[in-house]
Amino acid sequence: MSKFNLEFRIKVVTEYPDGKGSMSLAKEYGVSNDTVILGWVHRFQQRGIEGLKARPITSEYSSQFKVGVLNWKKQNRTSSEIGNCGT
């Protein structure tokens, strides 16, 4: 879950071109770092409102991806064991 919802991000980003700097916006709205706001502004300029939507963080990989990794490891004779240098 995102700390700041989409409506909030839109509000902050739309105030940025009106002459308010990222540092003053961060202070006014309680955002911990002005680089967060600059990131929102950049994503908004690149992708519009879609760029401001929360991006899910997932570490789940498809079965097809996992099989591909295992095949690559087999083809390249790699091992997940640390310190295995073929000795």
Rank of each mutant, 00 (worst) to 15 (best):
N33K: 09
K3W: 07
F4L: 10
L25G: 03
Y61N: 08
K66H: 08
L25K: 03
G19S: 10
V31G: 02
S2R: 13
N5T: 09
F8E: 06
L25F: 03
K53R: 12
G48V: 03
L70I: 12
S2M: 10
V36Y: 06
G30D: 07
G51R: 04
V69F: 07
D34A: 12
L6D: 04
R47P: 00
K20Q: 10
Q64L: 10
R43P: 01
V12K: 00
W40Q: 01
V12Q: 04
S62Y: 04
F65Y: 14
Y61L: 14
R47F: 15
E60S: 15
R43S: 12
L70N: 11
E60H: 14
L25Y: 04
T58I: 10
H42V: 08
G48K: 04
R43W: 02
E28T: 08
W40G: 01
F65P: 00
F44K: 02
Q46C: 08
W40V: 07
T35H: 11
K3V: 11
G39W: 07
A26E: 00
N33H: 14
I10K: 11
K66Y: 02
T58P: 00
K20M: 13
Q45S: 12
G51W: 05
T58F: 03
I37S: 03
S2Q: 12
H42R: 15
S63I: 08
L52E: 01
Q64V: 12
V67I: 15
S63M: 11
S24T: 11
K20F: 13
I49Y: 04
K53F: 01
G21N: 14
A54V: 05
S32Q: 06
S63H: 08
G19H: 12
V41L: 05
S24I: 11
N71D: 14
V31H: 00
W72V: 01
E7G: 14
G48H: 02
L38Q: 14
R9L: 05
K53Q: 12
L70T: 12
V67Q: 15
S2C: 09
K20W: 13
V13Q: 02
A54W: 09
V67Y: 08
A54Y: 14
F8Y: 07
H42S: 15
G68H: 05
S63F: 07
G39V: 08
Q45I: 05
Y16S: 07
Y16V: 04
M1V: 11
V41G: 00
W40E: 06
T14A: 00
A26D: 01
E60F: 12
S24G: 03
R9G: 01
Q46A: 15
V12E: 04
R9V: 04
R9W: 01
N71P: 00
Y16R: 13
S22P: 02
E28S: 08
G19M: 06
L38E: 10
V36R: 06
V69T: 09
E15K: 10
V13S: 04
V67G: 01
D18G: 05
Q46W: 01
K53Y: 00
D18F: 08
I10M: 09
G39T: 10
Q46F: 01
R43D: 12
N33Y: 08
T35M: 14
Q64W: 06
W40K: 03
Q64G: 03
K3C: 04
V13P: 02
G21D: 12
